[in-house]
Amino acid sequence: MSLDACAALVQRGDPDRFLAVMAAPLAARSRLLPLYALNLEVARAPWVSKEPMIAEMRLQWWRDVVAEPAPRAHEVARPLHELIQQAALPLDVLDRMIEARRWDIYRDPFEDQAAMDAYLEDTGAGLMWLSARALGASATAEPAVRAYGWAAALAQYLRAIPELAARGRVPLLDGRPEAVAQLAVRGLIRLNAARKATATVPRAIRPALLAGWQAEGLMKQASRDPAAVGDGRLQLSDFARRGRLLWQATTGLF
Results as ranks from 00 to 15, higher is better:
L154S: 03
A151N: 08
A204T: 15
A165I: 11
R17L: 10
D16M: 08
R58H: 08
A23Y: 02
A227F: 03
A114Q: 09
L234F: 00
A37Y: 13
E178K: 03
S49I: 04
A20W: 02
Q60L: 05
I84S: 03
L94W: 01
A197L: 04
E82V: 05
S30G: 13
D14E: 12
I189S: 14
P52F: 02
L120I: 07
P162D: 15
V21F: 07
R29P: 01
P207V: 14
D238I: 15
W213V: 13
A228V: 07
P143I: 00
R195L: 14
D95Q: 12
M57F: 00
S237F: 05
P177K: 13
P226S: 15
K50M: 08
P34S: 10
L130C: 12
A144W: 00
D117M: 05
H81P: 06
A194S: 10
V145C: 02
L33F: 08
E216K: 12
T123G: 14
H81Q: 08
A45V: 02
P177L: 05
F18G: 08
A43R: 03
Y148T: 13
M22L: 14
P143Q: 05
N39V: 04
G136Q: 00
A166E: 15
H81R: 08
F254H: 09
A165F: 05
